[in-house]
Design a protein around this nucleic acid. Sequence first.
DNA 1: CCATTCCGTTTGCAATTGCAAGCAGAGTGG
DNA 2: CCACTCTGCTTGCAATTGCAAACGGAATGG
Lengths: 164, 164
Amino acid sequence: MALPKVGSIGEYIREQRQQAKISLRQLAAAAGVSNPYLSQIERGLRKPSAEILNQIAKGLHISAQALYVQAGLIEDRETPSDVVTAIRADTHLTERQRQVLIDIYESFRKEKHSEDEQTSQKAHPRSDSVADDEQSLPAELRAALEPYAASTGNDTVNQETKEG
Amino acid sequence: MALPKVGSIGEYIREQRQQAKISLRQLAAAAGVSNPYLSQIERGLRKPSAEILNQIAKGLHISAQALYVQAGLIEDRETPSDVVTAIRADTHLTERQRQVLIDIYESFRKEKHSEDEQTSQKAHPRSDSVADDEQSLPAELRAALEPYAASTGNDTVNQETKEG
DNA sequence: CCATTCCGTTTGCAATTGCAAGCAGAGTGG
DNA sequence: CCACTCTGCTTGCAATTGCAAACGGAATGG
């Protein structure tokens, strides 16, 4: 395949480098890549890997995400909702758990629609001790959530929810 | 010769894929990469480029940042992955909704934490067509959540899993 | 029993990354 | 004028990515 549109990332790097007033070789040294390779990257002749991109970002003292966005490697971070983003980014949740959480959150948002509330952030007296000794989750809700909690192919819960 | 410690990213991908209950080939197709290559990635034999990583993230419906963090390509402090903080900061939720969301999240975390990973399973590939993805919120769960949503008496809970 | 269809893996191979070495030009100054 | 040093760029080459094709199992079904 011919060269794709990697030009924008190279231009961006060169722009940032020139704004920092450092030479190509200096940035190459700071980033730990070779000078010719950086030259080719800046002119769009090569498509750097994520590792190289990360090192360049470090050498430029800019956020790696800025470079990734420029390279089209991550979405433009529209921040749809910090909650959804955080859930999606949580590496400890399973796919299923993520979807359940997001769905619950969105249904909450929808329900909340008509109700205007000016909740000033007052101090939460017991904000830190959540889910420690007393769970405010009623039994029925916990029971309903059980099949979603840890099902990773374990068949302790027979999920025969087949549509008729 | 010596394979570097790219293992963690591969393990993570495989874990996420198995939790999503899709085959290696399915994920490969969804991500637009070849099956053998994905196999090698998951086993840590290859170090995927950022582009491939991004496509895999799309195929897994997880944030690309999560993968990049796992791969050690970006610092994890760059990602706002604190679900509880995000929920607390959301001004569109009622206090009660926040509490429920956080509790569900915490219970998910607990279940996942104590859960023993179980990969040895008798594969029954086409027992009951698991292919249909989600049916996100079952009626029982929605019913259990209703009293917590908002007492507007409106029950228009249509689920729209936003997919990119 | 053999054909089919999944699953994941192994095996070559083209294309690409990324680098060491070397090239051309512009200042600087002895 | 020539040596030195800086700038960025071009050239081969080893190592790697990423893929098409083919392989060994396991389950379904004629």
